[in-house]
Computed example of a mutant assay.
Amino acid sequence: MRQQYSLVAVVTHWTEQAVVFDFYQETRCEKADRDLLKHQAVLPRHYFDYLLHSGVMEIECDPPYISAQVQPASIGMNIRSLGSSVLFDMCFAPQTYKLWQNTDAVLEELSLPADTFEEYVYRLGAISRFRYLGRVDDPVVATQLGENDMIEFKRDFLLSKSGIIKTIVAFANSNNGNLFLGITDEGVITGINHEIEQYGDPDKYILAITQYIQDKTSPLLSPFPKISLKKVGDQYVVAIFVEVASELICGLDKNGEKYVVIRTNNRSVIVKDPHQIGEIYVKRKLGSEISRRLGLL
Rank of each mutant, 00 (worst) to 15 (best):
E60P: 06
V56E: 06
D49P: 02
V232C: 08
I59D: 11
S222T: 10
L296G: 03
L207E: 09
V136F: 08
F241W: 06
R2P: 07
E289Y: 14
G125T: 06
F88G: 00
E147R: 03
S111I: 15
H13N: 11
E60D: 14
S268W: 01
I183R: 07
I192M: 03
T27H: 15
A73Y: 02
G55Q: 02
V261S: 01
D49W: 03
S291R: 04
V269M: 04
S84E: 12
V106K: 14
E58A: 13
K161M: 08
V86H: 02
A126H: 08
T15Y: 10
I227K: 05
R263F: 01
S74N: 02
L221G: 00
A142D: 05
I280M: 03
I75T: 09
A142W: 03
T264Y: 11
I79G: 01
F48S: 07
V282C: 08
I151C: 00
A142K: 05
F88E: 00
D149E: 10
R135M: 11
A105N: 06
I75V: 14
M77P: 10
I209H: 00
D49N: 09
Y65K: 07
L107E: 06
G295V: 04
I127L: 14
S160F: 05
R135K: 15
E109M: 10
G251C: 00
K283G: 09
N193S: 03
V140A: 13
N176A: 13
G134T: 05
E289C: 04
I290C: 08
E26T: 15
L220C: 10
C61Q: 10
D62Q: 15
N193W: 03
L158P: 06
S288G: 07
S228I: 08
I165P: 00
N266Q: 08
F88T: 00
L220P: 06
E108N: 13
L297V: 13
Q211K: 12
C29Y: 15
T264S: 09
S160A: 11
A170F: 05
Q214W: 04
L296A: 02
K258D: 01
T264F: 13
V282H: 08
Y132C: 07
L296I: 02
P223M: 04
D33L: 09
I262R: 12
K254W: 11
L248N: 04
Q17G: 13
Q25A: 12
L36N: 02
P225C: 03
D138L: 12
L179S: 00
L82H: 10
S174E: 05
F48V: 02
A208K: 10
T217R: 01
S128F: 12
G287W: 03
D201M: 01
V11W: 10
H46T: 11
Q144Y: 05
I59E: 15
I189T: 05
D62K: 13
H39K: 14
L43K: 07
G187T: 03
K154F: 00
K161C: 02
K285V: 12
K258Y: 06
S67K: 14
L107I: 11
V141L: 15
Q211Y: 01
R263E: 00
G163P: 03
E186T: 09
V19H: 09
I165Y: 00
